[in-house]
Design a protein around this nucleic acid. Sequence first.
RNA 1: GUUCCGGUAGCUCAGGGGAUAGAGCAACAGCCUCCUAAGCUGUAGGCCGUGGGUUCAAAUCCCACCCGGAACGCCA
Length: 547
Amino acid sequence: MNAIENTIKKILQTGLKEAFDLEKDPHIETPKDKTHGDYATNLAMSLAKELRMAPLNIAKAIVEHCPKHEDIKAIEVKPPGFINIFIKDDSLFDLIEAILSQGQTYGTSAIGQNQNINIEFVSVNPTGDIHVGHARGAAAGENMTNIMKKAGYNVTKEYYVNDGGNQITNLALSLQARYEQLFDRDTPMPKDGYHGAEIIRLAETIKENYNDQFLDRDDALDRFEDIGVQELLKTIKTDLDRFGVTFDIYFSEKTLYEKDKITDTIKELKDQGFTYEKDGAIWLKTSAYGDEKDRVIIKSDGTYTYVLPDIAYHNDKLSRGYDKLIDILGGDHHGYVPRLKAAIEMLTGQKDKVEVDILQMVKVLQDGKEIKMSKRSGKAITLRDLIDAVGKDAIRYFFARHSLNTHMDLDLDLALKKTNENPVYYAQYAHARIMSLFKKAQESDGLTPQKNLDNYNALKGEEIKTLLKTLSEYPSVIKEAAQTRQFHKLTQYIHTLSANLHSFYAHIPILQNDKPTIQQYLNLLEATRLVLKDGLNLIGVSAPNQM
RNA sequence: GUUCCGGUAGCUCAGGGGAUAGAGCAACAGCCUCCUAAGCUGUAGGCCGUGGGUUCAAAUCCCACCCGGAACGCCA
């Protein structure tokens, strides 16, 4: 909520109080159609039932009792009962100075109340390269974190490294097979082995570094496991880093075993009577807490199912004192959520502290056909290759545009060939245009943006008013995006702001004015640039000085 | 069969009780003697999957159905 909207609310509340002796928080919106005012409210219509009056008459009565205000030009009533508010053109000039002095802190808020939030995302098994399918979650977690931090949340980003389970044994066996194949042995790949090229490359590296040391050794598998996890995780980190995604904590599943957290968890669940034995396995009574059936946690061969260490892991996270845990999971895991939450409820009674954001899978198309991402088959398009081909910015912007619920199609042919048509350039170009203009203004008139300008009376016209209004909306966009974790709302905002800037730029020959006028324009542009850059920064897209 | 997503312009997607349903791309028509045309301006293009219901008001909420994706393991 910005200053002018607050003013409007107060005026309406006063009008409502005077006319009907009622108190209500009016919903303010900004109509797309300019003839409907700069701001509008459906207040009268929402009171129709309560007051048993025609909305139009309610609106008229409220408006008659609204106090005058220096920033308000007119208040109109339109059928079926909208109240449309028009503001004076100069009422938003204060905003320019506010943004210039606040700089990159413009748009921050305390709405998060310093809540401690843990966001777990990516958590890709260290059994191969990170691919395009993983990239959506990576971008999502990073975007959410950045926006939430700006809105006053304390956010910790965490990556759960599955370095303890079955798939790691498989990895070691795969590595061993590839390694021994390099010595002309026909060691077969294990069933469910990892067939990706990165495993072959890693085997070659091991051969270069250790020669034949790992042939016929008792502890060979352990070594392949250690080296495999270490090296593949390193590659994942490097790729993520290039993607602009970093983590505060990499949590090793293995440490859960080493610190007996798993056995503690089993004991706790058993002691509280949540388990039973059937068919040689240990089951957890998750159906008593909303799951559709009970789940095995210890298989009849004595090994654990995936959920057991994950329960211990979430228990550990909660014990670290977070107010909320957010998991970002792929749509293929949605059925897993009830059992996890059930177990957390059994152990801690805090299942409401865990929120799971499900993202729908990305369908990747090439030559009009779908490419299935699979690490086992090794057919995936790696994130690294995609970044090399189209750049980080284009990919981050692409993912930042869409809500998590969207079933997205990523057409590689389109993404690779038509990079200039990617909307990311529209926003980046807006920033580059401003910078270019600054350079010109400096060269020709020796002018740069300067704070504490006396007035902005040269700023006139619809384009400028629109731009200022958009700038004024930034803080509420951040708040909403943070609270709902709908980062795509910020991306939409960035697009709107860019459009406003381009339109303004195209209609007003800025540098063909006297110096005081140019100065005012430069300040407005600088305010725009700061917001644009900040917004792009939050979604991991660079703001270039020239293009 | 059950559960979770989705179905909106030719394509990719916003909107998720309120005014004439939006954007990008693609299409069409204009705009560079002038700050980067990666831009601007305009035109065209929609039974908002179907049928009921709730409401002063439904693309939006509820129910049923149709279509697409995903999940329903002692896999992870």
